[in-house]
Each structure stands twice: as C-alpha cells, then as structure tokens.
Design a protein around this nucleic acid. Sequence first.
DNA 1: TAGTGGTCTAGACCACCCC
DNA 2: GGGTGGTCTAGACCACTAG
Lengths: 255, 255
Amino acid sequence: MVDLLDETGDLELAQSGVPLYRQLAAKLRAEIESGSRGSNEPLPSERDIAVRYAMSRDTVRKAVRLLEEQGLLYSEHGRGTFVAPSSVREMSRFLDSFSQDTEKRGGVAGQAIILVEQMPANLAIAGVLKIEPRQMVMRVKRIRTVDGSPVGIHDAYLVLPPGAVFTADDLVRSGSLYKLLGDRFGLNAAEGLESLSSVAANAEDASRLGVAVGAPLLLCERITLSERRQPMEYCEMKYVSSYRYTTRVNKFSQK
Amino acid sequence: MVDLLDETGDLELAQSGVPLYRQLAAKLRAEIESGSRGSNEPLPSERDIAVRYAMSRDTVRKAVRLLEEQGLLYSEHGRGTFVAPSSVREMSRFLDSFSQDTEKRGGVAGQAIILVEQMPANLAIAGVLKIEPRQMVMRVKRIRTVDGSPVGIHDAYLVLPPGAVFTADDLVRSGSLYKLLGDRFGLNAAEGLESLSSVAANAEDASRLGVAVGAPLLLCERITLSERRQPMEYCEMKYVSSYRYTTRVNKFSQK
DNA sequence: TAGTGGTCTAGACCACCCC
DNA sequence: GGGTGGTCTAGACCACTAG
C-alpha cells in the first residue's frame, strides 16, 4: 500500500508560474488518462502523496478537489480516493462544446457559415442579452457538421464592445468563435445557462439539415455570460435527432 | 465598505455537528435568497468575514468555494466576491430534478404510476447497468405531471440489493423514488450521466402524453451511479416539447 | 486500532485590480 | 499603495471505515 506512485515520474514539478496543485492535478490526470491507474483503483493517501512530492497535504487536497469536480476522481471518507470509471471521466461539458464533443467521439467537426452580420437587436434579443433594443449586435449563423454531414444549425447573437466587428473570414481563420472573441476583444466566457427542449423542423431546418419537415430536433438555447456575469451571447442551436448532448450531474445539494 | 454584514444576524454559528464552513455557507445563502444582497453586489472581503465570525480565512474560503460551485457567488482576483445574477442562481441541476425543477417554476409536480415490477434484465439493460443478463431488476414506469397535466414518461430500471423489493404503495407513501431507495436500502445516488436528444412520439407516448404520433419529444437517458460509482439505475425520460431541461455550464477546463 | 479523508487554524507571501 | 482574492505551509483534531 506504500508508494503506489509511478516510480518513473520525475519528482520535480517544474517551477513555473503554474500553481503547485495544478501541476499535481495535471500529473495525476496524465497518469489516469495514460491508463496507468485503472477505474476504481485507489490513489495513495493524501499524506503519502504530500510526502512524495514534498508539498503540504492541503495542496494535495486542492489538486484532488479539482479532479473530483471534473469527474476524474471520487473520495470516500475513511476509505480513500479512487479513479472514477471511464464512463464518468469521458463525460463533461464545455462552453465551446461542439468541436470538443465531436472530436472526443472520434468525428471531425466542421462548419459552413451562412451569415455574419451586424444588426440592431430586436425586443426579444435585447431582452435576453439585457441591452437596449436597437443596440447593434453581431449575428453569426452557421451549419455545424460532423464528418461533413450537417447535424446542427447554430444561430448566435453577440454583444461586442462599441465599434467592434469581425467578418466571416476572421471566423474561418480563427477556427473557433470563442477563441476569436477572446483573442480579439478580450471577451471571455465564464459560464452558460442552457435550456433544452424538442421542436419540429420547419422548412428551413429541413432543407439545411436534410430531414423532413416536422422531424424532431433537439433545441438548445444558451445565454453565455462573461467573467463579470454580463450576457455576451444568446445562441439557438438545433440538432438532428441522432445528435446527443451529454452531461454529468452531481448531487451537490443535499450532501 | 466596512462591515457590510447584516447587523441583525447572530454572530454565533450554533455549535452542532455541521461543519463551520457549511454553516457560514448556509447563512450567506440565506442572505442572498432573502434579497438582502442583490445581484452583482460585493460581499465583504474574506478577511473581514473571517474576523466577523471569528473563524479562519481558509474556512471562509471553503464556504465561498461551495457557493461558487452552486452558482450563487463568483470571485474575481483582485476585485472581490460578488452575488451571481438571479438568472444564474435559479439555474441548477439535481439528480431528482423533476419535482424540484417543477416547484421552482411554480408548478405542482405529480405522478401516475403505470407499473412497479421485478423482472430479469435483458441484454441492453444489463449492459448499461453492468450486471449479468437475467439478473433481477426493478422497473418503475410512471407519468410525470405538472399541475395535473402529463408532461413526461419516466421508465426506470433499478439494481437493488439481493432480495430487496418494494411496491407501488411504498413509492406513493415515500413520495420520491430516491428517498425510498436511500431510506430503505441505503442506496444513495452520487452522480448521473445524462444523454439528451430528440425523438418522435410513438403510439404509446402519444396516447399517454396527449400529443400526436410523430410529435417531437425530448429524450433524456440517465445512468445513475451510487457513491461507489456502481450503476444503480438506468432511466429513460421522454418529455413533451413544452418541457424545458435547464442546466448551468461552467468552463472549468481552461482556467 | 490503524489508516483514511474531513475540518480548522494562524500565518505567510504572491498576483491582480484600481486609485 | 492599499486592498482583494490565490496559493502554500505545518500542524492539530475529528469522523469514518475496515480488519
């Protein structure tokens, strides 16, 4: 039970600007993802890890907390800390989920831009984005594809700093909308509020997605908030029925 | 900027078995929910709160972390800790979400039990629950209602301890399936893996939910894991298109 | 009873924001 | 420069699990 830690790993967690607990978390994550620690196998005790890496137990605990939140580990009082089953580890949600989800499933994510334009917000859009009606917003509408086949339509309305604009070309070059907003305008998403329901395909949906009018679609609406919790995007996403939106739910409430 | 804390609140956080940081979190939560701290308003500094309640700063930080994970607060390095906007605060996901979601939206959640029976697992069920085919499982199928109207069909398959059974009557008396499993069998859910997509209503769905055959439904499949991360339930839920599944997504990954 | 995770402390220093 | 949150430490004691 002593020293279950990888003997080959270097002890030194390089002295960079990265906090110690994040370096440890990264190391533990690597060990898990490489398969050298299997599902439901125990980690060494927090005290052992602390000694092994010459850090305080509290720092070890911070790393474990982080990985627990991400679904990679779980701890049980009095028993130990264990590697989560792979089914849990593979499940996660990100804000820019489409590309990541698709790649994780082994597909190639793509997009076909339908329009990128500046327009005054109507009442509905202004309402969800908490801005004045007629204030200018950017609209980005595109088809999302997996291995070349259309699987969804994204229609996003963005609140940009005054005067800021970008073109379809910028979006193509940047690859990711969120990356573009962050790099160019310093607009970083902090969290998103999503609402999922089902809806029947209308004529446009049907023709763009290659399904029959009336076919069931998954409708996902999202309000994205910036770090200061100001709405920065409203996005409506419709997916064909073969597309699956996956998420992990933890019952933090009652514990 | 000094002493923004509620002057009327008692300083003593009762000495019960409840950890200090949870008591503080509960107190802060109460202040927020009562409206005495509005959206985006700052909390006193961690150091001030620590002095005010005669606890260490680390304990204050634990309470703040907890509420941050739950979407009630957000912190910014160098600026302070703030109350999250109500739109974020009201958004959360629980495992036993149907009743809570419905009540939060001001509706009355109800159920009509279709069947509660013991049956041998078929290949598909045994596969997702990671048990042997033909091992006995309990099946609970019911209609979920909001204000008396049917909005969804839940079809759950449960892995119980050997010999354990319950009846429809037990479920009615207990009120909640999870409560019944916890109280009676010590089976507590730790987390769930959910997969959402859309599907067309079949004849049975249509008649039970009062929609047309082919109408779009929201399909939510869930595998519920126990504290030891063993599958304890597979549940298939279908909802009419007016039902909304809401969730909060945070971008923990890149930070 | 020994070992594990869970809570709590008192202090230190760093990184960041804003005046 | 002064205040904020972020990281880290070294030690203590409690609560739970399991042989």
